[in-house]
């Protein structure tokens, strides 16, 4: 999802850069205020960890393999502000040292992957956690669903930026990005949940340490990121939400209807069942695909959480993250 240089224009880069700088500023202030000093080096090390974890291969069908993105993993392990900082650090280093992601697109990349992804992810995580209670199963359910939502949200923000820049038309960018990332999100959810389940088994106290000290601070933190994310969506996505029929009609007229019909299956190939052929319009089928996909992802997340919970740990007994600390035997 790293946008290279040349794909976002000046005004988008400026807007995204301002939002990213504001987000990093809020995160820095929060971390300085509420993170215990002895855990400060952990941000740099967690950034190195996210980078190293991104290099682990997860084999998918046919010789291809996927990898972790890690925003929700960082948010669940360290809390939202530290996660914003960790992901921001990873992106800055990738941009300047490894030329992965452009310099002018750095703001956009930080906005998508270091603000939207952990912000949306942690918000979903907190809400599901609140509804589903404090058991280990709810921890895994919340993690899985949050990972999926954060991946899709970041992809939508990315599509919006490409469309506002005039690089890729919205009618192409949204179905392509959102559709593909609905599938990638499933992989991300499975990996993140497996990792969290393993950490909860190995060293549950690490998870408890990052859990909020039940205060108002966490909500104030989330509200600040929520505001920034909402602002960004208003800038990058809202123009298309209002002018959408127009833009699409234009595209359809320019392509000719046969061309649209011929291209639709190509774009929506990852989600063939959700495209409603009678409606024809890419947007309505995307919306339907989106809602069906969200429900499906929640169902899958629930299944995953059930599968990964040991039989005894599902109940409400014990501390939030369940299980007694076990000495790590594998050294």
């Amino acid at each position: 999802m790293h946008i290279p240089d040349g794909f976002v224009d000046g005004k988008t880069a400026l807007a995204a850069g301002a939002l990213a700088a504001a987000g990093l500023g809020v995160a820095l202030r929060n971390v300085r205020r509420s993170f215990p000093p002895r855990r400060v080096p952990l941000i740099g090390l967690a950034a190195a960890f996210v980078f190293a974890a991104q290099m682990l291969n997860f084999p998918v069908a046919g010789g291809t393999s996927g990898h972790l993105i890690g925003a929700v993993l960082a948010a669940v392990l360290l809390g939202p502000s530290a996660a914003v900082l960790v992901m921001g650090t990873v992106l800055i280093l990738q941009c300047f040292m490894f030329a992965d992601g452009g310099v002018t697109a750095l703001g956009a990349n930080i906005f998508n992957m270091a603000l939207v992804a952990p912000g949306v992810g942690y918000a979903v995580f907190a809400v599901v956690r609140r509804i589903a209670g404090g058991s280990r199963r709810s921890l895994l359910l919340a993690t899985a669903f949050a990972s999926w939502c954060s991946t899709v949200a970041a992809a939508i923000a990315c599509a919006g930026q490409l469309a506002v820049s005039g690089t890729v038309a919205w009618g192409v960018a949204l179905p392509a990005m959102a559709g593909v990332h609905m599938l990638i999100g499933i992989g991300e959810a499975v990996i993140t949940t497996l990792v969290i389940a393993a950490v909860a088994g190995l060293r549950p106290e690490l998870l408890r340490e990052s859990a909020p000290p039940e205060g108002r601070l966490r909500y104030a933190e989330l509200a600040a990121y929520g505001l920034l994310v909402a602002l960004g969506l208003a800038v990058f996505v809202a123009p298309f939400a209002s002018g959408r029929p127009d833009g699409l009609e234009q595209v359809a007229a320019a392509l000719g209807f046969e061309a649209t019909a011929a291209r639709a299956p190509l774009l929506a190939a990852p989600l063939p069942e959700y495209v409603v052929p009678g409606l024809g319009s890419g947007v309505s089928s995307t919306v339907i695909a989106g809602s069906v996909g969200t429900l499906l992802a929640f169902g899958l997340a629930y299944l995953l959480a059930r599968l990964l919970t040991p039989p005894g740990a599902a109940g409400r007994r014990g501390p939030p993250h369940g299980g007694a600390p076990r000495a790590s035997a594998a050294a």
Binding site: L45, V195, I196, A198, L202
Partner: peptide
């Protein structure tokens, strides 16, 4: 996934 989890545990100890 277990490797990743161990990696996190180790990096937090290293931190």
């Amino acid at each position: 996934a277990t490797v990743a989890a161990h990696l996190f545990v180790r990096s937090s100890e290293r931190a």
